[in-house]
Design a protein around this nucleic acid. Structure first.
Lengths: 225, 225
DNA sequence: CACCTACTGTGACCTGCGTCTCAGCCAACA
DNA sequence: TGTTGGCTGAGACGCAGGTCACAGTAGGTG
């Protein structure tokens, strides 16, 4: 299995190769495709996941049909650990966005592992702290920044995480529909569409199928803040 | 010092009395009053705080003068630890909201302490996980819930944390101006004022100086969700 | 290849809430 | 005791963005 990729996850970053590969070997891998659900709100949360390849979205549903996305995660990222540390049902659902391989680690195994490797526990603290900060950031964006600004931010963020330099710009294969993008920035699909169209008409980016190519990253940055 | 109260903080909850009181003794207490700033955005974050009595607000400022509140914390609650686990400047400022006593614990002391008491590290993980969940909750509220609904939620939350049963209802001394309440729910002062006035006119609550008394908690709950 | 379903693009309309403004109120302080 | 400054209450107005409606496009399946 792609040892390399797994090692990027905070869970494993602190480990020497042997320990890490032993741990990875003990975890159960699974392949899934778009639309597959890893877990839903209300499920009992008994394992943590690490993404090998592909992307997964974490979301919450409102009483009526609406949905909002907490995050979109890619290779090397970890999720689902919250209900291990803070026992209780899952408050979020995890859905596969593109062809994805993940490995899962059960609750007891994780507890045992953390007890044996306190350095990893510290890494996890650091990881959670970072996520808390980013989430707080997201909160104030929602208050301070208008929709086009949030769209720009989201694209830049997706760009740094999933973008790859191409002919004339950064190609970002986010694998998200505009609907999902809208749920991610907390706006309606239509408004996001218009923001994207506007950016494109200014030549800041080119729209593609579940992807964008960022041409003028500086303008986009300026629009974001 | 109020040993009892300190022991409520997740940091100490797992400790036996001796260890806890030894630790508390090593921490420097300070008394502050409304408006005092514990730290500001950009400061280098080198200590964590535990509130003995009083309340503290955590906030972020936008480029222009606007401000948004991340949380309002009371006795027994802890803050400022994020920049210890995830090194870097503070991304949030901490300001005293009412007469407050806090104790501070320096970075190195904390690191040492966590290394010696792994059970406490696990408690901290649990604490961060819980906060992350609540913050995610706040995020989706901002998208799904209208301003009056968010005001109702905020009051209920403040109620469970700071409320005390009184003659006819729950008296909530939140110590916040309507301006601060507005920053907490991500809305304008005026809109929050109108929501409060509306709730009061329906007899769900009575407004007081930096306080409310909740009369009909069920109605308020129903309005919140 | 034809059909269907999911997705994107765009305009028209409507509304919740922000902004502006001003008027009372109370506490602090000279 | 009057004055000043922070806080609350409330109306008028405008706009960002939500909702609705529909048209065009592309990928997937028989």
């Amino acid at each position: 299995m792609d040892q390399q990729i797994v090692m990027k996850a905070p869970l494993f970053a602190a480990l020497d190769d042997e320990t890490a590969s032993a741990l990875v070997a003990s975890m159960t891998p699974q392949s899934m495709h778009r639309g597959d659900v890893l877990f839903s709100e209300g499920d009992r949360g008994d394992s943590l996941y690490v993404i090998i390849t592909g992307k997964v979205k974490l979301g919450r549903a409102s009483g009526d049909g609406r949905e909002s996305l907490i995050a979109v995660l890619g290779a090397g990222e970890m999720f689902g650990e919250l209900s291990l540390f803070d026992p209780g049902p899952r408050l979020t659902s995890a859905t596969v966005v593109s062809e994805t391989d993940v490995i899962a680690l059960g609750n007891e195994d994780l507890q045992k592992f953390l007890a044996e490797h306190p350095a990893v526990a510290m890494k996890m603290l650091a990881g959670l702290a970072r996520r808390l900060r980013r989430t707080n950031e997201g909160l104030s964006d929602l208050v301070f920044t208008d929709v086009p600004g949030r769209v720009a931010k989201a694209l830049l963020d997706l760009g740094t995480r999933f973008g790859e330099p191409s002919a004339e710009g950064v190609k970002v294969n986010h694998d998200l529909t505009q609907e999902e993008l809208a749920q991610l920035v907390g706006a309606s699909r239509e408004t996001v569409n218009k923001a994207l169209a506007d950016f494109a008409s200014r030549g800041w980016l080119v729209l593609g199928a579940k992807a964008v190519t960022i041409l003028d990253i500086d303008r986009l940055r300026r629009r974001a803040r």
